[in-house]
């Protein structure tokens, strides 16, 4: 400004820099205009991104050239102000202390203030408990499966024992139960009866070698959606149910025992029975709780 004293060093912007910045800005404008045009036409995502991103990149180039060549180049030195204001710190402390000087029952008041503060804060936080059944962990123990419940596929059709081939896998659900419930879904596989190694108390849980396990991994709740079943058994990996999240591997022949991976509990098994028209029914409850472990989860 005329008359005002000079504050910044003199600087002459090199011509190339001015032209470069001008071009950058003009091209950026063109790109942005292009973006508007493409948006109005067919709004192809790739072109939109190229043009808008390009516009910004050009603005970036212009700014950087401005910074490095157009404006005065300075390296300034400044003193660091001290962060130490002991006198003021003392004054602040004295203000606080002197304000309370007249109080004699300070311990009583402090205690009461503390109690009031905590309880009022607590009172304000307590309504958050309405967010969910905080105290009702029994909900985690609810069971969709009980004796007599029919197995259905995802279209609601009953599962027929004869339709399940050896070495295949089928998902199944509890009839009449919300399919989203973790305790409702099963993975049904069929092994050759000679492959089974179930414990004695589960000897009749797998009619014709058909086994039903919870589909929800006991590690972290993902759906166990992989069956490994060898076509030619010697030397190939043995049958297993595997979870794709962290590769917990369960042995369907051995009551869902964990044979690899981080799961801490075997996969719960559902005893099956075959009804009169060959339909599959649950013959009892699941062998254990479904889903990931928690503090009070039943083991075994």
């Amino acid at each position: 400004m005329r008359g005002a004293p000079r504050l910044l060093p003199r600087h002459r912007a090199p011509r190339w820099a001015e032209l470069a910045v001008a071009w950058a800005l003009i091209l950026a404008a063109a790109a942005a205009a292009g973006f508007i045009a493409v948006y109005a036409l067919d709004a192809d995502t790739q072109w939109l991104g190229l043009l808008l991103g390009g516009a910004f990149a050009l603005l970036a180039a212009g700014s950087i050239v401005t910074a490095k060549a157009l404006v005065p180049q300075e390296k300034k030195e400044q003193e660091r102000e001290s962060l130490d204001h002991d006198a003021e710190d003392l004054d602040v402390t004295v203000y606080v202390q002197e304000a309370g000087e007249g109080i004699t029952r300070s311990r009583l008041l402090k205690g009461a203030a503390g109690a009031a503060g905590l309880t009022v804060l607590g009172a304000l936080l307590v309504p958050l408990a309405s967010c969910g059944p905080l105290l009702d962990v029994e909900q985690l123990r609810r069971m969709a499966w009980r004796r007599g419940r029919r197995l259905v596929d995802e279209n609601g059709r009953p599962l027929i024992a004869d339709e399940i081939a050896i070495g295949s896998m089928t998902p199944a659900f509890a009839e009449g139960v919300d399919r989203e419930r973790l305790d409702a879904s099963l993975i049904v596989v069929r092994l050759r009866p000679d492959e089974l190694r179930l414990p004695p108390q589960r000897a009749d849980w797998a009619p014709r070698g058909i086994l039903a396990y919870s589909k929800i991994c006991t590690h972290a709740g993902c759906a166990v959606s992989m069956l490994r079943y060898p076509l030619f058994a010697p030397k190939a990996p043995s049958p297993a149910l595997v979870c794709p999240c962290h590769y917990s591997t369960f042995d369907p022949a051995r009551a869902g025992k964990v044979i690899f991976g981080p799961a801490g509990r075997p996969l719960p098994q559902l005893p099956l029975s075959i009804g009169e028209n060959g339909e599959l029914f649950a013959a009892g409850r699941m062998s254990g709780p479904v889903g990931p472990s928690w503090w009070g989860v039943e083991r075994g």
Binding site: L128, A129, C131, G132, P133, L134, D136, V137, Q139, L140, R142, R181, L182, G221, G291
Partner: peptide
């Protein structure tokens, strides 16, 4: 249970 308003 609180956060999810019930079991997952």
């Amino acid at each position: 249970l609180l956060i999810w308003h019930g079991p997952f």
